[in-house]
Design a binder for these strands. Structure first.
Lengths: 214, 214
DNA sequence: TCGCGAATGTGTACGTCGTACACGTTGGTG
DNA sequence: CACCAACGTGTACGACGTACACATTCGCGA
């Protein structure tokens, strides 16, 4: 029935976008399609068939690259965590003296506001994290970034899992999570001010204890 | 095929548990079944057919009481918020002088730890909140409870949406949300101590500003 | 240059899901 | 007692995730 196919699926998909001859591009197309559908119609609408249509392949093609739909979303989440971590690290590095923590926290907020669907994928319950522990490796790194920023601002070593880091991280995350949900609606200006306040509280508290300690 | 039914569905379901004659009990049975399945197998496993089997009725019976699966989960979430609010209010009322805020925050933590599936329903993304705004009416009340507790502890009026309330609420919620997720694993003892620390920080900060203000 | 195996794609099919529809059954009220 | 509204049932449809068998393509050693 299709024995006389002259144009292969590979050739069809080539838009001159990449120099790689043909294969190997499908995986990226699938991830991109899933991301786009998730952003525009929500993660529940990200079905294998929709992905396939958007990516220009059959639904089963995705299973050559991901063992299941959950694994696909997990890979997307992994990328998202990576991106979030990079954004926070970059913000911390580029910040002026003493403002690293604030910059990092602001970057976290900016990520959640500008890529809400990605944020929801990372922290919502759309992918079954339990069955695919391969995802979420970069999640832990966020504590490190916060700790590094705090340490640079107050001039003292800070452990990534210290009380201060956890409290600040939890505060910022909780604020965004609540305002993302249906129960708390805050405009972005107030969110920014609240985040700044939390950072100031943390930095001040640590400066005091650092002075009192030695 | 079932024209000779002698025992009705109503009679079958009566276990002597309630005195109400028959009907009107199905809705409660459905909600209970959904809750139990969610607790034991996760919310993804809460399907209309599973609910029906557990509740002893047909899958379509649920549609006499809820317009959709999302609406059913929404009703469950509404109950959950009510319960959470009640637990927090009760804890605040029974607390000794000056310890209301700590008790309220601890009640929030206890709820999340002892009923993890309910907590996940409330704050995860298992029910489409957007399409069913009837749910989550009691969510807003949580800010009120926190504000009341803080006010009682420091002897000054506190607005439910004030910066202090939002920061504390967000901190506690964020801590629990993060530790519930895959990225941060904290034992309950440390969680309790962190929550206490957040409460102490908030109360101290408000006491200072209250002293400085007048 | 030519196969030939591994990688990658396709089409079809199965079981399950949410739920629309048409129909029976029940319980209270004139 | 007859009726109506509320309640429950069985069946069916389209969409879902995905197992399976097969086709196509790529890269590499002879």
């Amino acid at each position: 029935m299709l024995a006389l196919s002259r144009v292969s699926a590979y050739d069809v998909r080539m838009g001159g976008d990449e120099t790689i001859r043909g294969t190997r591009k499908t995986r990226a197309a699938i991830l991109e399609a899933a991301q786009e559908i998730g952003a525009s119609e929500g993660w529940k609408a990200v079905t294998m068939r929709q992905i396939a249509t958007r990516a220009g392949c059959s639904a089963m093609a995705a299973y050559r690259h991901f063992s299941s739909r959950d694994a696909l979303l997990g890979a997307l989440a992994e990328d998202g965590f990576q991106e979030l971590g990079n954004a926070m690290r970059a913000a911390g590095s580029n910040a002026r003296k003493g403002g690293a923590t604030r910059a990092v926290a602001r970057a976290y907020l900016a990520f959640a506001m500008e890529m809400p669907s990605t944020y929801e994928l990372l922290y919502g319950s759309h992918a079954d994290t339990t069955n695919h522990p391969t995802a979420w490796p970069g999640g832990m790194a966020i504590g490190d970034v916060v700790a590094t920023a705090l340490a640079s601002d107050i001039g003292v070593d800070v452990a990534p899992m210290s009380d201060e880091v956890l409290m600040l991280w939890a505060g910022v995350h909780g604020l965004i999570a609540l305002s993302t949900g249906p129960q708390l609606k805050l405009d972005r200006g107030r969110l920014g001010r609240l985040v700044d306040g939390m950072v100031a509280n943390s930095v001040n508290a640590m400066l005091e204890t650092a002075h009192a300690k030695p």
